[in-house]
């Protein structure tokens, strides 16, 4: 599997490493994917890197690669963001993978080996949901709202109604809310706020977890929040050019 830029892998690692320390990557002809629960079992994260994300991709037999994020991060830090990355896994020797970084400008090549782990992965079945509300907005805006409100209080409430979408946080000494309305005057789709819902709803989530989820803003200019009463929220970042996505399911807080 050969990626044109290592930056994609670096950003994926940054987006999951606070939640997941080790995880199985499932490789098949469609691409590489992973699903993992954080240790607290509050967030489920799913990553899909489709074949389209790669400059070249070949997977003759489906394989599972058990990856420890810490050494993987150390290896990835050795790659420049613009360098190509080739990941090689041998079906005859499933003890490790090889990573090769190529810097075409400097004619430099570096090679690393990463030992694989035997991880008892837990796969969760995510039912197809009919969402009660969907909001899409610039991922940078969502990140700023969450980062700011997480300073105010540890509970983040998201309410969707005719007024728009309201994000509220309440702390011991202060309370704050921000309201977004669907944008009408913005031309660029990536800068638009779109809101759809069937019934008004209001749900509360842990702000520190939501903060971790906004790290994936580096992977996509837009984010989609899907909500339904008494269900985990789905926060989805679609990568450009059908390259794949990262999805987080965060369980709500309830009285």
């Amino acid at each position: 599997a050969r990626l044109p830029r290592s930056a994609v892998l670096k950003k994926i690692l940054d987006s999951v490493k606070d939640l997941v320390k080790e995880t199985n990557w499932d490789c098949n002809e469609e691409g590489m994917s992973m699903q993992a629960l954080d240790t607290g079992r509050i967030v489920l994260v799913e990553v899909m890197l489709r074949e389209a994300a790669f400059e070249s991709y070949a997977c003759e037999v489906p394989m599972t690669l058990g990856i420890d994020m810490e050494p993987f991060g150390k290896v990835l830090r050795c790659a420049g963001g613009d360098e190509k990355v080739t990941i090689k896994a041998s079906r005859n020797d499933q003890d490790h993978i090889e990573l090769v970084f190529e810097n075409e400008e400097k004619e430099r090549m570096s090679a690393f080996e990463l030992k694989l782990m035997d991880i008892d992965g837990e796969h969760m079945a995510v039912p197809d949901a009919e969402w009660g509300a969907e909001i899409s907005m610039p991922s940078s805006e969502f990140k700023k709202i969450v980062m700011d409100l997480a300073e105010i209080g540890s509970d983040l409430t998201i309410a969707v109604s005719k007024l728009g979408v309201t994000f509220t946080a309440q702390g011991n000494n202060c309370k704050g809310s921000m309201v977004l309305q669907p944008s009408t005057a913005v031309d660029k789709k990536s800068e638009q706020v779109a809101i759809s819902f069937t019934e008004p709803l209001e749900m509360t989530f842990a702000a520190p977890y939501m903060k971790m989820i906004t790290k994936a803003a580096a992977l996509s200019s837009t984010v989609t929040l899907s909500l339904d009463e008494a269900c985990p929220i789905c926060v989805r970042y679609e990568m450009e050019d059908n390259a794949g996505h990262i999805k987080y399911y965060l369980a709500p807080k309830e009285d």
Binding site: R41, L44, A125, D155, A251
Partner: peptide
């Protein structure tokens, strides 16, 4: 204070 639910209360193991 609201109590934190777990993902496993909503999704089942495959």
């Amino acid at each position: 204070m609201a109590s934190q639910k777990r993902i496993t209360a909503f999704f089942k193991r495959k």
